[in-house]
Amino acid sequence: MRFLIPLGVFLVMVIFLAIGLSLDPRNLPSPLIGKPAPTFQLSKVEEPSQALTPESFRGRVILLNVWASWCVSCRQEHPVLLELAQRQEVPIFGLNYKDQLTAARDWLSKFGNPYEASGFDQDGRVGIDLGVYGVPETFVIDKKGLIRMKHTGPVTPQALEKDILPLVERLKQEP
């Protein structure tokens, strides 16, 4: 019976270490969930004379996708966003984070533009207000302008079908 105690301690350690290994340290809970999206006024990448503000999507459930032409994982998620845009289930807005205007526009014309509009956040201030720490990041914003979900890292088809789109459908039912 004496061996039971060290065995128990060992098993508890194994369980905790296994949980620790399976967690993604980059996936941090955002304190912004349930809070209003920060206000901003940015010029549009596609048309710099026009402004993109939260008013542009007030009253609609939207995805706000943070991207940059220098971001490798953004290339990876890009086909997923393009396909989603074609399905017209939910409008996608972009936040072009710490990029060069010409590079961003080249990127969109080269790979396709899934965004209804992208705001040009050159100094990353809006990114900081959104708590962005790793591009790409995607926010689900409801009709009242509240942030309801944050997805860190590239949007995968699985994440879309399992988490993001079901939430979007639910939020569309809300007044």
């Binding site: 941090l28 955002s30 304190p31 207000d129």
Partner: peptide, 8 residues
Amino acid sequence: LTDRYGDF
């Protein structure tokens, strides 16, 4: 910072 990034 905590308002944007959390206690992390």
